[in-house]
């Protein structure tokens, strides 16, 4: 299991734009962490440090206590898999199954192992029946699920999801929630960037709020969406999920269940 640590990480792009400043973050195996923040707050830059796609200009990134500075991305990809936001920036194969098998094959798995991993990953995202389809015949939401499957099949200990719910309907979001839960149950780590506060509140046990390249808040959804944290959320143009706002008004706390919300609303109406 991979223990991730960022120690005093800063990052400045070649054009001089500072994206990260003094980020200290530790993620233990099996954690389910959401990273939220306004556009340009450094979320994507942060996750790209985890597998060496970007290297910190200050500080260091550790995998199990080992500085990854000298380790190639191709080697780090065996531990950290990233599902990017736009599926069309990844898909290249003419067949869904081939696309999913690509990662495991690149990592050195045998053809049989890759096929088995692809079958399991496609089942996890509900694309089993489309295994022989051309990826470009699928709609956007399914292409996103395909890219998720292609990283799941790699069996990495850490799975990073960049805006996984974009373009998904309620059924797609529910499926992604089940996938996240399944990964966590297997003791693997999930880190997701998201602007979908409801998805974050319902799915993740830890929320990191970023603003201007720094970690502003880091805690459970109950801590981060508590009324006392709202000004900090507002400073990075985030709104707590509706349930948290209604829950606060009704005295149910920042993460009420839907049942308790309905009961309280019925009671409030008299």
């Amino acid at each position: 299991m991979t223990h991730l640590a960022l120690e005093g990480v800063g990052f400045v792009y070649p054009d001089g734009t500072r994206a990260l400043s003094e980020v200290d973050l530790t993620v233990t195996p099996g954690e389910v962490v959401a990273i939220v923040g306004q556009n340009g707050s450094g979320k994507s830059t942060l996750v790209r440090q985890l597998d060496g796609l970007l290297r910190p200009t200050e500080g260091r990134v550790l995998h199990d206590g080992v500085d990854i500075a000298g380790i190639r991305v191709a080697a780090l990809a065996a531990k950290v898999g990233i599902v990017f936001q736009n599926p069309d920036r990844q898909i290249f194969a003419g067949r869904v199954r081939t696309e999913v098998e690509f990662g495991p094959r690149i990592l050195g798995r045998s053809a049989n192992e890759a096929a088995e991993a692809a079958t399991a990953a496609l089942a996890a995202v509900g694309l089993t029946e489309l295994a022989d389809a051309n990826p470009y015949d699928l709609g956007f939401s399914r292409r996103k699920l395909l890219t998720l499957a292609s990283v799941l099949a790699m069996g990495t200990q850490v799975v990073v999801l960049d805006e996984p719910t974009t373009g998904q309907d309620a059924r797609g979001v529910a499926r992604i929630q089940r996938v996240v839960e399944a990964i966590a149950t297997a003791g693997r780590t999930v880190i997701a960037i998201s602007h979908d506060m409801r998805f974050v509140a319902e799915t993740f046990t830890r929320v990191v709020v970023m603003g201007a390249g720094r970690v502003l808040l880091d805690g459970s959804p109950a801590d981060v969406f508590a009324e006392s944290a709202w000004p900090t959320l507002a400073s990075t143009y985030l709104e707590p999920p509706l349930a948290a706002r209604v829950g606060a008004r009704l005295g149910l706390g920042p993460t009420p269940t839907e049942v308790s919300l309905v009961e309280a609303l019925v009671e409030a109406r008299g």
Binding site: V73, I82, R89, V151
Partner: peptide
């Protein structure tokens, strides 16, 4: 970046 993250050695 996307393909390197899947282990492609460039």
């Amino acid at each position: 970046e996307s393909q390197r993250a899947r282990g492609l050695d460039t």
